[in-house]
């Protein structure tokens, strides 16, 4: 593995290995606390995302490495018109690995094509967010004890919600997984995902607008935020943002062991009264995000095929 651009870059074996490594890190963090000493992670964030950036930075610091980077395009040379290709060529000389978030889809792919260091896609527009997917897989794996034979409900913005697209792509490879998509008509899961990923593999799924009705079927309910920045039209955003709100009343329909997940930040799609429900695991999920990023950084830096020989990790 040279880079991680799309969840599809990872084989099932690689995913399972990353989850296993994250598990070992969780069990014994001190064993890994200096393993990346002397290594640098560059966080190239062309759009703000405090949570993901801090998660990456905390991951590298927990491994004993250090971090550098920028947190918005305004504070980078992109503001002067520098291309992604040129930026990564320069950063390749300064850091050992980089995490890139960019509002335009495919930007991390362009970076990987010109980079001498491993590039991790930390989210590109509405496209891919592979480390969120790994976070979700680690969360499900640790809290459900398996990744197969599960019914995953995805609710909210399934059209622009890249976390859902990536999750569907990743979970589709596990046996016996079925999906329930809960969204308004305008925010349905894209046709290409239905045809290329689900239909082509014969994976069972259904689409509905009624959350309560399908709650009892679900092993996992993955809630998403309707994101203002994905809409060109403010009116559409306002009309659609409050259609699905998970509250204590709706939780009564859920199984006692169902997990409520959310990539965060939430706005109001999950009522705060749900936070105290033991089935609400979104804050735990955020914590797992840091551990899986530690596992990923460690794995990429350990790959002998990746640049900068004499890697200690």
């Amino acid at each position: 593995m040279h880079h991680l651009i799309s969840p599809q870059d990872l084989s099932t074996t690689q995913i399972n290995e990353l989850i296993a490594l994250a598990g070992r890190i969780i069990e014994s963090p001190s064993s890994y606390s200096e393993i990346c000493k002397g290594k640098k992670l560059a966080t190239l964030f062309y759009e703000p995302s405090t949570r993901t950036r801090l998660s990456f930075e905390a991951a590298m610091l927990n491994l004993g490495g250090s971090v550098l980077g920028f947190s918005s395009a305004d504070s980078s040379s992109a503001a002067k018109g520098e291309s992604v290709a040129d930026t990564i060529r320069v950063i390749s000389s300064y850091a050992d690995i980089c995490a890139m978030r960019h509002p335009k889809e495919g930007a991390p792919m362009v970076a990987a094509m010109h980079s001498r260091i491993p590039v991790i896609n930390a989210g590109d527009g509405g496209h891919n967010h592979p480390t969120q997917t790994l976070t979700d897989l680690l969360t499900i794996s640790r809290l459900k004890g398996r990744l197969d034979h599960l019914t995953i409900g995805c609710c909210g913005d399934l059209k622009f919600g890249r976390t859902v697209h990536s999750l569907v792509n990743a979970m589709a490879r596990y046996e016996g997984v079925r999906f329930v998509f809960i969204s308004p008509e305008e925010l349905k899961i894209p046709a290409y995902l239905r045809s290329d990923v689900l239909d082509s593999a014969g994976i069972s799924y259904k689409e509905t607008k009624n959350l309560e009705e399908v709650m009892p079927e679900l092993d996992v309910l993955y809630m998403t935020r309707v994101q203002r920045e994905r809409f060109f039209n403010e009116e559409d955003y306002i009309r659609l943002k409050d259609l699905f709100i998970l509250d204590a009343e709706k939780m009564k329909y859920a199984r006692p062991d169902m997990l409520v997940m959310h990539p965060l930040p939430r706005v109001n799609e999950i009522s705060t009264e749900v936070d105290s429900d033991p089935r609400a695991v979104y804050f735990k999920q955020a914590e797992y995000g840091m551990y899986i990023r530690m596992a990923l950084i460690l794995t990429l830096l350990s790959d002998p095929e990746n640049k900068k020989e004499a890697l200690v990790c």
Binding site: V84, H102, P103, K104, E105, G106, V110, D124, G125, D196
Partner: peptide, 21 residues
């Protein structure tokens, strides 16, 4: 033609398409 694609802001990028089906 995707307005969110990186090719819309990086003019020197060669537009590449892969046959997927």
């Amino acid at each position: 033609k995707n307005p969110r694609c990186i090719t819309t802001i990086e003019q020197e990028l060669v537009h590449r398409f892969r046959l997927t089906d």
